[in-house]
Design a protein around this nucleic acid. Sequence first.
DNA 1: TGTACATCAGTGAACGCGCGTTCACTGATGTAC
DNA 2: TGTACATCAGTGAACGCGCGTTCACTGATGTAC
Lengths: 251, 251
Amino acid sequence: MRQNQVMATPSTPGAATPRASTPRARARAQTEAEILRIGREHLATTGPAGLSLRAIARELGVVSSAVYRYVASRDELLTRLVIDAYQDLGDAVDAALESVDVTDFAARLRTLAHAVRDWARSEPATYALLFGTPVPGYEAPGDRTTEPGTRVIRALVDIVEAAWQARAVAELPASTVPASVSTDADQVRAAFGVTVPDDLVVRTTVVWAGVFGLVNFEIFGQYGEAFTDVAALFDLQVTVLVESLGLTKTS
Amino acid sequence: MRQNQVMATPSTPGAATPRASTPRARARAQTEAEILRIGREHLATTGPAGLSLRAIARELGVVSSAVYRYVASRDELLTRLVIDAYQDLGDAVDAALESVDVTDFAARLRTLAHAVRDWARSEPATYALLFGTPVPGYEAPGDRTTEPGTRVIRALVDIVEAAWQARAVAELPASTVPASVSTDADQVRAAFGVTVPDDLVVRTTVVWAGVFGLVNFEIFGQYGEAFTDVAALFDLQVTVLVESLGLTKTS
DNA sequence: TGTACATCAGTGAACGCGCGTTCACTGATGTAC
DNA sequence: TGTACATCAGTGAACGCGCGTTCACTGATGTAC
């Protein structure tokens, strides 16, 4: 008879395996990565709702129950894919911004928009996972996805704040923002640690949602056959959106 | 033995049943409508990918094979839901515009935007069917969905064209639109029978995709907890979008 | 360097579930004469 | 008004499929002494 296993501390699926020193640990890390890769691949053909652990096991060349050594459940896999995707997108945006003059705010905004679009085009299914219809029956755990999920808006807000600090935003006609929105804007300013006025908060959300709206239309095919040079169209559209912020030329 | 049935013309599922005079025909029409209603309802909880004829049959209180008297296949049902949804949205937008002064272009644009949002909020799952992630494995038949699917952009283009004709659009700085986009714009002008210049075509697409981008963000929960008064926020956002068209105050 | 034991990846069978679609059928409803 | 026949809604069984998840197990890998 085997010993009672209660005292053992089994490796929790999904738990970080920090020191990948031993061959076994390396194999594990590799399989884990492989599962995520196949999962991402399957997203493309089946959509999030059709993501199946059995199908992944099949492609991995392993019996279906074996994937449970690596992933606690289907939802857990979805969560990991979501987090990975947000990080990937965040990295892409950050990397693109790195090579742009920090004082050329319009250029930075345009770069951000193009980085989002490029990433979406390179991984449309993953993009859909984040910004398309929410997966029915699945709710992303806020404590793990919120932080990576805010990287793009964080970058966007930082650019706008920098422009505001540099007095590179046109004085806007004193708009009458309702008190409710003003209060919400207070929360936003506090959360991001910025000082932009109400009106600019609103305009920033328009650019934000606008960029994703443009990308959505392109990725999800809403334009139909109307436009052939979607890249050039996007560039012009971004110009319109950026203009709507009221930046003054300063560089 | 029964007669050969080849000579009979069985009622094709999905074919229009014009004269709903007989009790049977009325019952049929009612069941058909019921199936669509239940289908729409199920979209909300399961998403398009989870839409199931068996589940609909169950709720209809009928054996699963019976729904095939009304619907040729699952994809056919999806198509009908899509068409219905587009018509519903188109009707909502048209109805909202009816009560707005035809010469107050800004008001008409705002009304259109709010009509889209209101409709989306009243039927989020149906909205997602049209403007969310495309359903994997399903392709809407263009010959049946294209026309209803263009009603909103049609309405939007008509407003912009009317404003242009009325010289209510600010003279825009001669923009350098690439030849490729200019050619695409020609196609668009021809398709819609309008005369707006390239730049205004682009700006119109921004308003179009922008409005749906805003609605997407709200319906799909991208704002997180940041905004409480989303209605007021939307109104301000629409103002920004409409401003970006460059309308001059004429009414 | 060798041995005993713990850890862990992967197996294979099973549970209970849902799905789309086909098919031969029954019995009620509608219609032509 | 009555009768024969055609139409059609709905039944019930079946086909073949895929899914998530659990469980007791085998055998290889890792580790403490």
